[in-house]
């Protein structure tokens, strides 16, 4: 399975929850943190289940999500 993680740009996020609905492995949740415009932002739960599918980034209206794929390379 592909592995990945996401970075949420705090000041762009408006906590619209569309990414939470799009995330199949349920790796995003709403947090109690607030950004400078007063929105409750979402946060990434780093449980190793993110498969870098990018659906959260695609649905995010505010381009607040950056998706990073983690590629395992064998030790030499």
């Amino acid at each position: 399975m592909r592995k990945g993680r996401i970075i949420i740009e705090v000041d762009r996020c408006k906590g619209c929850l569309l990414c939470i609905a799009a995330c199949k492995p349920k790796q995003i949740k709403i947090s109690k943190k607030m950004n400078k415009t007063g929105y409750n932002i979402v946060e990434f739960c780093d449980e190793g289940k993110c498969n870098a599918c990018t659906l959260c980034g695609i649905i995010c209206p505010d381009a607040a999500i950056e998706v990073i794929e983690i590629i395992e390379t064998e030790k030499k």
């Binding site: 990945g4 740009e9 000041d11 762009r12 408006k14 906590g15 619209c16 929850l17 569309l18 415009t37 929105y39 870098a52 990018t54 980034g57 695609i58 209206p61 505010d62 381009a63 607040a64 999500i65 950056e66 998706v67 990073i68 794929e69 983690i70 590629i71 390379t73």
Partner: peptide
């Protein structure tokens, strides 16, 4: 190794959208 596969397009400025949520 890490590779960025999705990010904010460069044709958008750094200014966050002022539209409502969603």
């Amino acid at each position: 190794t890490e590779k960025t596969i999705y990010k904010k397009p460069t044709s958008l400025t750094d200014r966050p959208f002022t539209y409502c949520w969603g």
